[in-house]
């Protein structure tokens, strides 16, 4: 009964979807800044993680055994450890060592907390992208590659012009899942005080004591962000579709 009442309470118009930040100018300003930070984290990490994935998958097909093993270790490390621990590792273990002397003569961190969040998220999602692209690369028939070899293509040209474009098409569904996860994982940056959406929201609700309303705001914001990403990925998939191929 209590449960039912609580549920009905949730549905009351002044609670249900009360986007508390819309009405208050001060909070709205902070919210927009947080949203913008989350978008920056997402876009930059997505871009860098794709780069890591493409390069990593290329190296895994390279002749050098040392390089292949190095990429394998990199992937294993980032796949098999919690992303929050990775973030702490970068920020507290490496960040405290990497310091320069600032203008005032005091030691300053070389890389900001925002910088570490980008690096950590990009490598985390990038490691998974390596695996995803590699599966795509392996799906490209050997005979297609040989046809390119017979035409005089170099290894690199084959990768950029034939293997990668085909591999991306195979990888897109898995890639989409990973990138959506990456957007959601940006909330971890909260832990090192990057003022992104969750961090800002927590500030607002601890000042205004409006946890429930801010939860609405948060959830709706992430649903919106992910919807935009899914739409972009969908457009990309459509643009890459080849008539008569892969049905």
């Amino acid at each position: 009964m209590d449960l039912a009442n609580t549920f009905i309470d949730w549905l009351r118009p002044d609670w249900f979807l009360n986007l508390a930040v819309v009405s208050d100018d001060y909070n709205r300003g902070r919210y927009v800044a947080g949203l913008w930070m989350t978008i920056k984290l997402s876009v930059v990490s997505i871009f860098l993680s794709l780069l890591v994935g493409v390069l990593g998958a290329a190296v895994q097909g390279a002749p050098s055994r040392t390089l292949r093993v190095a990429v394998g270790l990199f992937v294993a490390f980032f796949r098999n450890t919690p992303p929050l621990v990775q973030l702490y590792f970068f920020y507290f273990a490496i960040g405290t060592v990497l310091r320069i002397t600032g203008e005032n003569g005091l030691p300053q961190p070389l890389i900001s907390n925002f910088g570490w969040a980008i690096i950590s998220l990009s490598l985390f999602a990038g490691a998974l992208n390596v695996e995803i692209f590699r599966a795509g690369v392996e799906a490209v028939p050997r005979s297609t590659v040989e046809a390119a070899e017979a035409l005089g293509y170099t290894r690199l040209q084959i990768y950029t012009d034939i293997v990668l474009p085909l591999a991306v098409r195979v990888s897109l569904p898995a890639l989409g899942t990973n990138l959506v996860n990456l957007v959601k994982t940006t909330t971890l940056a909260y832990a090192i005080a990057v003022p992104e959406l969750l961090y800002i929201s927590a500030q607002i609700w601890s000042e205004d004591l409006n946890v429930r309303e801010m939860m609405n705001v948060l959830l709706v914001s992430y649903v919106g962000l992910v919807a935009v990403l899914v739409w972009v990925l969908h457009r990309w998939e459509k643009a890459l579709r080849i008539p008569g191929y892969g049905e």
Binding site: P141, T144, A147, A148, E149, A150, G152, P165, I242, Y245
Partner: peptide
Amino acid sequence: LRRKVGMVFQQYNLFPH
């Protein structure tokens, strides 16, 4: 070498994209 020699395969092996 490959500028001098062209090759056609049983399975065509065109670039599908």
